[in-house]
């Protein structure tokens, strides 16, 4: 990751030329947020959450902005971003499939359901399809244990899944 190697220059808190690939409006919004909390290292997690909400993931440029504005070493921001499961350091697909791997789903066959998703989409859990369309994730619990096994496609929950049903959901996804 090249940004890790680069020497930090420029005024603290100001987005520099590294943000050229990011949407300028969103960079400005992140900067507004950071200005409100300047110097407060306890705000690292909310800042990363804000960045992810804006960009869909946490780009290295955003981590650098956060490090500078909150006067926290870049290594610590990176450390926090990689510690928590919520943060993605790579862009996600247009749609997200979250397969619940909670206990109730596990005993009702979530393992087979996950393999079926993996096979049908041709990606491992955590990966994104080659066309950048669908990201497959596994989550600890969706809290819909009564409908186990469950999966959340974007914001829609499908319950009582079987590997056969997965095939149907995938083909409807591909059409959508």
């Amino acid at each position: 990751m090249s940004v890790l190697m680069r020497k930090r220059t420029g005024p603290i808190g100001a987005p520099d030329s590294c943000c050229a690939d990011l949407v300028p409006v969103k960079v400005a919004q992140l900067n507004d947020f950071l200005t409100q909390h300047a110097g407060k290292s306890a705000m690292v997690i909310p800042a990363l959450q804000h960045a992810q909400a804006l960009f869909g993931y946490v780009p290295p440029e955003a981590m650098q902005m956060i490090a500078e504005a909150l006067r926290t070493p870049y290594a610590r921001v990176y450390g926090v971003a990689t510690f928590y499961a919520q943060f993605r350091l790579q862009p996600a697909g247009r749609r997200t499939v979250r397969v619940c791997m909670g206990t109730a789903c596990h005993v009702r066959g979530a393992g087979s359901v996950l393999s079926a998703w993996s096979e049908a989409l041709g990606v491992k859990p955590g990966g994104t399809t080659a066309d950048g369309e669908i990201t497959l994730e596994q989550v600890s619990c969706l809290g819909a244990c009564g409908l186990a096994p469950t999966v959340m496609v974007d914001s829609t929950t499908h319950g009582r899944l079987t590997p056969g049903k997965v095939k149907q959901v995938v083909s409807s996804l591909r059409k959508a």
């Binding site: 393999s115 096979e119 079987t162 590997p163």
Partner: peptide, 9 residues
């Protein structure tokens, strides 16, 4: 892949 879908249906 031994998912058991055939067995179940």
């Amino acid at each position: 892949i031994k998912c058991g879908a055939c067995f179940d249906v």
